[in-house]
């Protein structure tokens, strides 16, 4: 198992190096930051001074090495647009995105698993059929449309919830949270639903089909023949056996939630890193874009790593440290 973990960690490292190269390449191939930073009345000396200051006068490999060196320390240089360290700009915005993604993911997993189990057990009931039909809407409507519909209904028509922003935040020093104020929580509801709905329906449909498959297995029949209660048959025996594929997909979807937060953040003007990234693109603020790319890929890679390790926790057949041999 340790060997496996090390191998996976190494693979993750390679992935990050490649993403780093792509992110870094943007500095050379996308637009010219000097153009963006200096106004029309610039002198050759200004340009040269800025090039040296930004390290753009160095050869490519040196620049890449410096970029990686900085990235490892969380230093992505100075934002072209804001003139402040990128790490500062991002860490200001990160809590908003992480809170939104976390709440969406929790909602998606809880409701996805619960509804998936329900629709599998009550396979032909009207409630299960209704949920399955509605879930088709969840997977087929684009995120921004769901967001706009929710805004229209709950913010414009009913006026119950705010349509944009994050509400009041509490500053904990290193983290600004919206989870501790009423307006913060209210502001979170619509974006969280918008962001998590697709993932919830996906998880639900997956749990349902896996459950149906597992419920056909002999050991479920045998569990019934042993007189176990439905609760135990469904949750102890069946649900656990659906978890490996469910965790795979859920893990990938968590990454997707963070990445797709861009759209939701734009629709709701949510002050997170997604919105920051969109604005960075508009102004060709390459250090910010590069940092964002690196951040997202680190999250993706770590989630995948955790998912792989979770398999071992769930499925004893994968563990190598067998107690006792084959008899």
């Amino acid at each position: 198992m340790l060997a496996f973990a090390i191998r996976r960690a190494f693979q993750s490292f390679i992935v990050l190096l490649v993403v780093g190269l792509v992110a870094f390449s943007m500095f050379n191939f996308v637009g010219d930051p000097i153009d963006n930073m200096l106004g029309q009345e610039r002198t050759g000396a200004d340009i040269e001074r800025l090039r040296v200051q930004l390290g753009l006068d160095q050869p490519f490999p040196v620049q890449y090495y410096r970029f990686l060196e900085g990235a490892v320390q969380g230093n992505f240089g100075i934002s072209y647009r804001q003139g402040r360290p990128v790490s500062e700009v991002i860490s200001e915005r990160l809590p908003a995105t992480l809170e939104l993604a976390f709440v969406s993911a929790v909602l998606a997993v809880i409701f996805g698993v619960a509804l998936g189990v329900f629709t599998a057990i009550r396979r032909n009931g009207w409630a299960a059929n209704t949920i399955m039909t509605l879930s088709l809407i969840g997977v087929s409507l684009p995120t921004f449309l769901i967001g706009i519909l929710l805004i229209y209904l709950f913010a414009v028509e009913l006026g119950w919830l705010p349509s944009f922003g994050r509400g009041d935040v509490v500053d904990l020093g290193w983290w600004r949270t919206g989870l501790l104020t009423q307006s913060g929580l209210k502001a979170l509801i619509l974006p969280a639903i918008t962001l998590g709905l697709y993932q919830m329906t996906l998880i639900m449909r997956l749990v349902r089909s896996e459950m149906l498959e597992v419920l056909r297995q002999d050991y479920i029949r045998f569990a019934r023949a042993r007189g176990l209660r439905d609760k135990s048959v469904y949750f102890r025996h069946a649900l656990k056996n659906t978890l490996v594929p469910v965790i795979t997909v859920t893990g990938m979807q968590l990454g997707a939630i963070i990445a797709f937060a861009i759209i939701t953040e734009t629709v709701f003007q949510w002050p997170g890193v997604g919105l920051l990234f969109i604005n960075a693109i508009r102004f060709v603020d390459i250090p910010v874009m590069a940092a964002y790319l690196m951040l997202i890929s680190v999250m993706f890679v770590s989630i995948n790593l955790i998912v792989d390790l979770l398999y071992f926790a769930i499925d004893p057949r994968l563990r190598l440290d067998r107690r006792g041999g084959e008899k």
Partner: peptide, 25 residues
Amino acid sequence: LRKVRGKEIGMVFQDPLTSLNPLLP
């Protein structure tokens, strides 16, 4: 009927490889 199963009537199936839940000791 559930209380009869296991308690008063036991059952042994054909395939022992698939009769046991693989994830529980």
